[in-house]
């Protein structure tokens, strides 16, 4: 009853970082609300998996361990959450805004008739006054709700930030991208209850309808999330060839290359380098934005960077307002000089 739940995603038998980040956030929300933090882990061969999550302050770990639950398929995992939530009636459920979370979350919300907000960049607890029509004197009727989950996300092309609340339905569901929340171990010896459920009770055999014939997961080719310096390019870089300059500067600085969505959509770089609300969130020591105008979705994914350097031919680019250093110039003009003078001054 009333708990905060996190659906923990696994690869093999390892709980993913995005889920551990959400456990840290979930612990804080649960503390604010004065309730328990619980989590669900579903997969195969999960002996001892609770050790990975308990240190994040989980009060109760629900384990569903059966062949057929890994690799993930939609229906069995939906059945687990829907049936468990019918019993437990949690007030909040958080998931990664990953392929799995974005496949599973909407199914669960549809089955339970609950609200779900995708790709949140902040989560808070607060009160909500909802106007529901007018009374006889034409005054608005206001319903007051306390301690609801504010689901905050950029919306509409990143021009606005919307705070979404679903006050009347449970659980309040939200997905969050990897890297948006910070992962912090609460107590390595945190004591929580571990429940190993009878999977057959929750998942009818008929739900195993999709067969995974073949599956390739590669280790990430780069470590954008953890890089101390990021050189990121936007549409203003101009071409795939021009991105080579970013890679060259990144090589010199031992940095990683990132990109805005516009640069990814234009085909300048691979999708996995996208920084922002619908990509990776980064917090490097130095962020060098090359030809990035700075739509809110992008800023959402890099605003916590230490030093921000913006190279832009448009002196009024929005990103310049959050930059520590603004270089008015084109990427073609400035980057070769940066490479040259870095080399000259480090020899």
């Amino acid at each position: 009853m009333d708990s905060v739940y996190v659906y923990c995603e696994i690869e093999g038998t390892t709980v993913k970082d995005v889920s551990l980040e959400l456990l840290t956030k979930g612990r804080k929300l649960a503390n604010t609300l004065g309730v328990k933090l619980e989590c669900v882990i579903a997969g195969a061969g999960l002996d001892g998996v609770e050790k990975q999550v308990l240190p994040f302050g989980v009060d109760k770990v629900h384990i569903f361990d059966a062949p057929g639950l890994f690799p993930y398929t939609s229906n069995p995992h939906t059945s687990i959450l829907v049936n468990l939530f019918k019993e437990e009636d949690p007030q909040i459920c958080l998931m990664g805004a990953t392929v799995i979370g974005r496949d599973l979350g909407p199914r669960v919300s549809s089955a339970l008739f609950s609200g779900l907000t995708a790709d949140c960049t902040e989560l808070e607890i607060g009160d909500f006054d909802m106007t529901c029509g007018l009374d006889a004197d034409k005054k608005p009727i206001v319903k007051h709700f306390e301690n609801k989950l504010y689901q905050i996300r950029p919306a509409f092309g990143g021009n606005i930030v919307a705070t979404i609340v679903n006050p009347e339905h449970r659980p309040q569901m939200a997905t969050v991208r990897e890297g948006v929340m910070k992962k912090e171990v609460l107590d390595p010896n945190y004591k929580g209850e571990v429940v190993r459920h009878d999977v057959a009770k929750y998942v009818p055999a008929a739900e195993y309808v999709v067969k995974v014939l073949d599956r390739h997961v590669e280790q990430a080719k780069h470590n954008l999330k953890g890089a101390p310096i990021v050189v990121a390019g936007g549409y203003g870089v101009g071409s795939k060839e021009n991105f080579d300059m970013l890679f060259e500067l990144a090589k010199e600085l031992h940095a990683e290359v990132g990109a805005s969505r516009a640069a990814v959509d234009a085909g300048f770089v691979d999708h996995d380098r996208q920084i922002g609300q619908t990509g990776v969130t980064v917090r490097p020591k130095v962020y060098i934005a090359c030809g990035i105008s700075g739509q809110i979705q992008h800023i959402a994914g890099m605003q916590d960077s230490g030093i921000i350097i913006s190279i832009n031919s448009d002196p009024n680019a929005p990103i310049n307002s959050i930059a520590d250093y603004v270089i008015n110039g084109t990427v073609e003009e400035v980057l070769p000089k940066m490479i040259k003078y870095y080399k000259q001054n480090t020899k």
Binding site: T163, V165, N166, P315, N320, I327, T330
Partner: peptide, 26 residues
């Protein structure tokens, strides 16, 4: 039929920093 409500919508106001502005000269 929509469980979600928009509580607030706001334009983004960046916490402007004092930027040092320079040219692309050598």
């Amino acid at each position: 039929g929509s469980p979600t409500n928009v509580k607030a919508v706001k334009n983004i106001v960046f916490k402007a920093k004092e930027s040092r502005v320079m040219t692309g000269s050598d």
